[in-house]
Amino acid sequence: MSQIIINGIMLGMSYSLIALGLTLVFGIMNIVNFAHGQMYMLGGFIIYYVYAQWGLNFFVALLFAALLLGVIGLVFEKAFFRRFLRESRRPESSMLLAIGTAKLLESVALILFGEKHRGVTPFITGVVSFMGAYIPKIKLFIFIMSFILILGLLIFIKKTSFGLALLAIVQDKEVTKLMGVDTNRLSMIGFAIGAALAGISGGLLTLSFPIYAGMGSDISIKSFIMIMIGGAGVVPGAIVGGFILGMLESFGYGFIPGSATYLLIFLLVILLLIFKPLGIMGKPGY
């Protein structure tokens, strides 16, 4: 039992990181980044090539993943979303644009990398024993890294003026604009950060889970579930959602046959949304 709980917590930390990227973009730009899962996948592949194949230092590879995905985020926002949000007549169109970007990333990845599942050998082997559970050291590493990154992000948001400006946009875009903040530029950077986070999560988790070009939509669905559970556009919501999903998965896989786990999780999500239509910590206005 303690193994299941420990697994859940470890999973939860990484999942929270994944969810944060998505919720940040949603909070700033009010669109769901459908390509979130694909960006995660690309981050994973970058680690696979830069670290596992070409032998560079893991942290360098991770930084590279963050930068590359950040650039992709910048480009997407500037080239696609910004001009788009001005012109279209129906708001649903921006969702379709997001889906288009997801398809683009996935199809390019399929062309470049093929369908093969790939894994990365962890650079730390062995297990530690903690409260009756066994934790592979690499998972502990991922746990600690996720924690540091989440902490770093929270500090960035709450303490730097840049982060506070982002937070302001999340709360009220119009007022923030009126206060002289260049919301366009900030949106672009916010999106870039969201993308970078997706890439970092992917890169980090590749150490423990295999990656393949088609995994984007599965990761996106998990991210959506976390957001629905925890609440969209709010930072604590992502963390709550991440941990709840981690726990649910861990308990589920522990007690019921594999594929039925997510069946149960979906049902629970629907049930939750009936009583809390905005998720646990969601705020109205979305």
């Binding site: 769901v32 579930i225 629905m228 594929s259 069946l263 979906f266 949304l273």
Partner: peptide, 22 residues
């Protein structure tokens, strides 16, 4: 509202596949 409905409907297809699988 809005995005919650959208995201939920997206998950519904996956749910149906899993249900049929199980």
């Amino acid at each position: 509202k809005g995005v919650y409905f959208d995201m939920l409907t997206l998950c519904m297809t996956q749910f149906a596949t899993l249900a049929m699988l199980n």
